[in-house]
């Protein structure tokens, strides 16, 4: 019974607001996330909290993993990602407020990886 509760507890529902994850996610989509860290990898779409206000949540895609060095910000400087951080970008990169602006985020800000869309019904299904 406890195992079943733990299994169910890893899933959460979120409503998506905004267009920076187009075309994969649209404004108004309702999605399910899993908090299982072993599912997180480069390319995963995640929900995470604002670095100072835990009530504000964002959705982006993981691009850089801990300890990697990236070069994709506007100043063309190398970004060293710490061992407890990840670098995130919006899919709609011409129009996204993401790690290029606010830098890498801490792993403990991540609430879950988006795995399934439940709304709208015509887009119901797994999100890869």
């Amino acid at each position: 019974m406890n195992n079943l509760l733990l299994f169910i507890k890893q899933f959460r529902l979120f409503n998506i607001s905004g267009q920076s994850m187009l075309p994969i996610l649209s404004d108004g989509d309702v999605v399910i996330t899993t908090s299982r860290i072993d599912f997180f990898q480069r390319g995963s779409i995640i929900v995470f909290t604002h670095n100072s206000n835990k009530e504000i949540l964002f959705v982006k895609r993981i691009i850089g993993l801990p300890t990697e060095i990236l070069n994709c910000n506007e100043s063309f400087e190398n970004i060293i990602i710490d061992s407890d951080e990840i670098f995130v970008l919006g899919d709609n990169q011409l129009d996204s407020f993401d790690s290029r602006k606010y830098g890498p985020i801490k792993m403990d800000q991540v609430l879950g990886k988006i795995i399934f869309r439940v709304w709208p019904l015509n887009k119901f299904g797994l999100i890869k």
Partner: peptide, 17 residues
């Protein structure tokens, strides 16, 4: 409905929030 089901909003912001 979202409040009732405990569904929180996650922002896919396009611009500075």
């Amino acid at each position: 409905l979202f409040n009732l089901l405990g569904i929180r909003t996650a922002f896919a912001h396009c611009d500075i929030p």
